[in-house]
Amino acid sequence: MLSLWRKIRRTGRVAEPPPPLPEGERPERAALLGGSVQIRHVDAGSCNGCEIEIGSAFGPVHDGERYGARLVASPRHADALLVTGVVTRNMAEPLRRTFDAVPAPKLVVAVGDCARNCGVFAGAYGVAGAVRDVVPVDVEIHGCPPRPEAIVEGLRKLTGR
């Protein structure tokens, strides 16, 4: 217990100072959420690279939570879906169902190039399409995988903080 306390004290604050609030337009419905965005992540067919960086974005260094975004367990509790990867034929229906389970107003963020335009997986036989082809997308985040800074920026577009 003491050693943990020492470790905590020695480490101090890990979170880096927040970058300035990103410019650019916010989705209209995001304003309704008033600085609190609960997020349900859906892996629709990613290579799990984007998951690593989403993890980083919510890690202590980037600390996505400080802007009012939080990962939650159930889509019923969520305001936004964070979808990664191309949508495979097997995940198209689960993704639709997840979207349906979210109470309005709801937003969808497509994370990474696969989610935006299928990336290198375009044309594969198991791919149903990009996220936009299955559910409406409000925010897109570029990169393969996007850097955590980009993900945080995307989240801040939702929370406005």
Binding site: R13, P60, D63, E65, R66
Partner: peptide, 11 residues
């Protein structure tokens, strides 16, 4: 908890 984990926290 956030502070003890080195985070800034949501307020």
């Amino acid at each position: 908890r956030a502070r003890l984990e080195g985070r800034a926290g949501a307020g």
